[in-house]
């Protein structure tokens, strides 16, 4: 792999890795009936920032355990994604060349093509990587590794289709200070009208509830 001149910072590395991850889950293309069209992808919406924040916010620090120096959960997850990518390279299962063009601050994972990033995630999900060499809390912790592969998908999708992007300027504030400022693109795309007071959608009743009928129908 050719050397790069970009200065990599820890946060730049985490950002790039998660950008590459959410971009693989929700890329900026859409396959409609009339062929593929451009849409806004998860990375363009900044959904990686949401995923990173939620992971780090959920991090459990055990009572009575030395916390210093504790790696942030987003950092250890980024390292795990790279471990998956390196394993993919190692077993020769890569189908496209690597490129540092898109995410110069990232590691091996973010240098992979989209399809190969998904393959790396699949390898991790199958625990087909050296899990003894992963950082805490993933080291030899298969349940948590697989849960995190679920969470990467779930958080990306939830970030994209819930109101998160609509928080606008309050997006990166603490939860109590977030306010919905605009209609998020995910709602437009899915046709969700947003929270409602109600719908005049009543089509009738199939049955009336048999209150106080005891063991009715049970002999």
């Amino acid at each position: 792999m050719r050397s790069i001149s970009v200065k990599r910072t820890a946060s730049g590395y985490v950002q790039a890795t998660f950008q590459a991850a959410v971009d693989a889950v929700i890329p900026p293309v859409f396959q409609g009936s009339g062929g593929s069209i451009q849409i806004v992808g998860a990375a363009q919406l900044g959904v990686h920032k949401y995923v990173i924040r939620q992971l780090d916010h959920s991090q459990f620090i055990p009572v009575g355990m030395p916390v210093e120096p504790l790696m942030s959960l987003s950092m250890s997850t980024a390292v795990m994604l790279d471990a998956g990518a390196e394993e993919l390279v190692h077993i020769g299962a890569m189908t496209d060349p690597v490129s540092r063009m898109l995410y110069p601050e990232g590691g091996t994972f973010s240098a992979l093509s989209r399809i190969n990033r998904l393959k790396a995630i699949a390898l991790i999900n199958q625990l087909a990587i050296p899990i003894h060499a992963l950082p805490f809390p993933y080291q030899n912790n298969p349940g948590l590794i697989q849960t995190m592969m679920e969470s990467l998908h779930q958080l990306t999708m939830f970030g994209y289709y819930s109101e998160w992007f609509g928080y606008g300027r309050t997006r990166c504030l603490p939860p109590e200070e977030q306010r919905v400022e605009c209609f998020p693109p995910g709602w437009r795309m899915s046709g969700y009208p947003g929270p409602s007071f109600g719908y005049r959608g009543l089509r009738g009743f199939l049955l009336k509830y048999p209150h106080q009928k005891g063991a009715d129908g049970y002999e």
Binding site: L118, A122, F158
Partner: peptide, 19 residues
């Protein structure tokens, strides 16, 4: 379900992975 929950519970949660 609302769309964020639909996306994540219908398509992002599976013990089958991509397989």
């Amino acid at each position: 379900l609302s769309p964020g929950l639909t996306g994540s519970m219908s398509f992002g949660l599976s013990q089958a992975g991509y397989a």
